[in-house]
């Protein structure tokens, strides 16, 4: 079986926060307690959208010690393939859904003397759980959170209300920007920096930290990619002895699952490495979108991450 263990849950609360973001609360359908988790963990939510099963990862934002309910926040992506739209438009309180056990690819380094969080937009969600975890153990943290505008600033009021000294908010439409070089320069020895947000922000923080001489081990980041639509293509699966068609709106991983091929996965967002697949033969071009393989692996034509990457060309044969 692929993916993490599953939990049957019921949607117990839905709260629209602003034009783009809605919060969902899940409780176990059997009434038992949910597993505790560590701040930064995500769950994969299964959505039955007609004939299509959508599986999207969302960071858990509730208190990791609260076993009665999990909450996630979903940002609506009108350009995406429909997972977030399904959550916004089709999910109602009382619905039964299946989610995965928590998986953490963005955990706190508990050796850190201070945790410096840098969030962009919906990237705030893993930090909400990490802040609750650190508050319980008197951890030392500081948050710098960039939002597009006041009206789209999810959880800004909660954060500035509870943690006025630790929270710093920046609104793009008011031309407020994080002064990253001085921020990094002023940190005490033993600080770890964590960034979650759009790709551009992650790249900016990683590069700036590297340029300022920060050790690689002290810089942590997480970005889940949603699979993007693309031109349909055909794939030969050598182990299963099948030729499958990947449609415009589905990922290679989803196409394999649709055809009954048990392909491994965990995050489904190009980050965890579980679905890494060996390419046996190809004629054409890969559209690599993952964070797992490095540039030389992408160029080699020997590996593909089927959760987010695609292919354009004549022949693709995979060892699956």
């Amino acid at each position: 079986m692929s993916g993490a263990e599953k939990i049957a849950v019921t949607v117990t609360d839905i709260v629209p926060l602003n034009d783009l973001v809605t919060r969902f609360e899940f409780k176990r359908t059997d009434g038992a307690l949910l597993p505790t988790f560590s701040g930064g963990a995500h769950t994969v939510v299964e959505m039955q959208d007609g004939d299509i099963t959508r599986l999207n990862p969302y960071s858990l934002m509730s208190d990791p010690m609260d076993q009665t309910a999990y909450t996630i926040s979903v940002r609506r992506d009108d350009e995406g393939r429909g997972g977030s739209l399904f959550m916004h438009n089709n999910v109602a309180v009382g619905d039964e859904m299946v989610i995965s056990y928590p998986v953490n690819l963005f955990s706190l380094d508990l050796r850190a003397r201070k945790h410096l969080f840098i969030a962009g937009g919906i990237g705030i969600t893993p930090f909400l759980a990490q802040i609750k975890q650190l508050e319980r153990f008197n951890g030392h943290w500081e948050l710098h959170y960039a939002c597009r505008s006041e009206s789209l600033g999810s959880y800004v009021d909660e954060l500035t209300g509870h943690h006025p000294n630790e929270t710093h908010i920046y609104y793009d439409d008011q031309d407020q920007a994080i002064d990253l070089v001085s921020l990094l320069d002023g940190q005490p020895l033993g600080t770890h920096v964590y960034v979650c947000g759009p790709k551009g922000m992650i790249d900016w923080v990683r590069k700036t930290a590297a340029d300022e001489g920060w050790p690689r081990e002290a810089v942590h980041y997480e970005e889940f990619l949603a699979p993007q639509p693309g031109k349909p293509f055909e794939v030969k699966l050598a182990v299963s002895n099948k030729v499958i068609h990947v449609g415009e709106q589905e990922s290679l991983l989803e196409a394999m699952e649709r055809e009954g091929v048990d392909a491994p996965y965990l995050c489904r967002g190009g980050a965890c490495g579980q679905c890494e697949t060996t390419v046996i033969d190809y004629t054409g071009n890969f559209i690599h979108r993952d964070h797992w393989l490095d540039d030389s692996e992408h160029a080699s034509g020997q590996k593909i991450m089927p959760c987010v990457s695609r292919f354009e060309g004549k022949t693709l044969v995979l060892d699956r």
Binding site: A4, E5, P35, Y101, P102, V103, L266, C272, G273
Partner: peptide
């Protein structure tokens, strides 16, 4: 190591 890093809660 790859196997162990991917051992998840509940499994």
């Amino acid at each position: 190591l790859k196997f162990l890093l991917n051992i998840q809660q509940g499994a």
